[in-house]
Nucleic acid binder design. Structure first.
Lengths: 111, 111
DNA sequence: CACCTTCATCGTAATATTGCAATATACTTA
DNA sequence: TAAGTATATTGCAATATTACGATGAAGGTG
């Protein structure tokens, strides 16, 4: 085994899990946070900011891009990365939805 | 390798990554959603609801509990599970924070 | 053109995750 | 106490992830 049994879950559950999984690593959290720290988008220097080798960072960036969390614009020799708001918005509204539902059933809890 | 280089990232980044990681699997998403679907907490029948074996579900529950996302109350022979609002609140505010910052720099974007 | 820079890909080693059968533990009830 | 029920743990196989050195591709510069 070792492979997730994707086929047994709903498409929504798999979609949100994939999106969440893309952020389930401190390096990718760090990348997203770094992309936000600056005023505009970042062109190139992500590798210098992270304590990981260039191939590793490239791999993490690829995962973020595949998940739709970041976008990359090629600009000559470098690439300009920035966060895709839509993906973040999805995550935010997902957790906001859970929070709202939790608030509703506050009185019906046993633990 | 294969092990995450936790020591190179900030404690905050590792903390939020761990929390996110706990939800980075459709089965655990399904568990959390099932816990919310009902009026009160669930005592026992999580295994029947999931397309996975009892040991596998037990393992996923353990991970969610370790991460602090759910609480389990032992009640005689069964266990009553429910979501820990604090953890969800943390996640929600994390993504809300990112969203807010993204809103601010909307005009400074190149892609 | 030769060389440098930037980023991606390949190949591979180390480790982690997923899933389940078998078994253990703990409580309940007959 | 014996049998049944609910959940946890163990042990293992299959697969995925993480990380990096080496190398490749593509654009820029002397």
């Amino acid at each position: 085994m070792g492979a997730t049994k994707t086929e047994h879950f709903t498409e929504k559950q798999n979609t949100i899990a994939t999106l969440i999984k893309a952020l389930a690593h401190p390096a990718r959290i760090a990348i997203v946070e770094y992309l936000m720290k600056t005023e505009a988008c970042i062109c190139g220097d992500i590798v210098d900011e992270l304590p990981l080798s260039q191939p590793t960072v490239s791999q993490h960036l690829k995962e973020l891009k595949t998940a739709g969390l970041i976008k990359g614009n090629v600009e000559g020799n470098t690439i300009c990365y920035c966060i895709d708001e839509k993906a973040i918005a999805k995550l935010q509204s997902y957790f906001a939805g859970i929070s709202a539902k939790l608030e509703k059933k506050k009185d019906n809890k046993c633990c």
